[in-house]
Amino acid sequence: MEALGIDVLFKGSNFMRLLGGLWVTVELSLISVAISMVLGVLFGIIMTSKNKAVKIISRIYLEVVRIMPQMVLLFIVFFGATRAFDLNFSAETACVIVFAFWGTAEMGDLVRGAVTAIPKHQYESSYALGLTKSQTYYYIVIPQTLRRLIPLSINLVTRMMKTTSLIMMIGVVEVMKVGQQIIEANRMTSPNAAFGVYATIFLFYFIACWPISLLASKLEKKWSD
């Protein structure tokens, strides 16, 4: 145990603190993911527009999000907004804004891909059967889109969850930061703590992401019938 450096986790309230850090990570990512999913679907539908201006604006938005490192976005929203517009976001709000901004763009692109991948004959057959436009979307297009979206969006969700480790830079103490705090506080007494603590954090991330994967494969099965 000591050679692996797991013993430090059982000192004082260290383990509870690590769990608390995990909760911060999960909470902030879930809020951001929820916002991203809703706005992303809307944004994706907008992106399928044939209007030039709409296309260009969505393209710019998407590229900005792709090119900018999330760290830069965090600094812009947390520090930059205060300097430029006197907007004083709390660190947590800044995280949610940045992650939702990022997630909406990526989710939108996934939705756009999924919607445009629906073959034209699906629409035409539906109209031929006498379904109205909204019925066509509700019964034909959306179910097929959702099924295609699931594996892609799960990938996005887990990526967002992992990227939250950056938010320590603006002062949010999440699971990685708590881990580093524990390692450093014990660097004299247990120099091997890094291994045990990081292994535990790895396990935590796995526990947080695994149910999402499970849910996804369940939904995929259910909807493929």
Binding site: S13, R17, Q181, I182, I183, E184, A185, N186
Partner: peptide, 14 residues
């Protein structure tokens, strides 16, 4: 700092 022992760090009691 919350992880620079012994200048600024968090002990096992948080």
């Amino acid at each position: 700092f919350s992880d620079k022992n012994p200048f600024g760090y968090i002990d096992e009691n948080g």
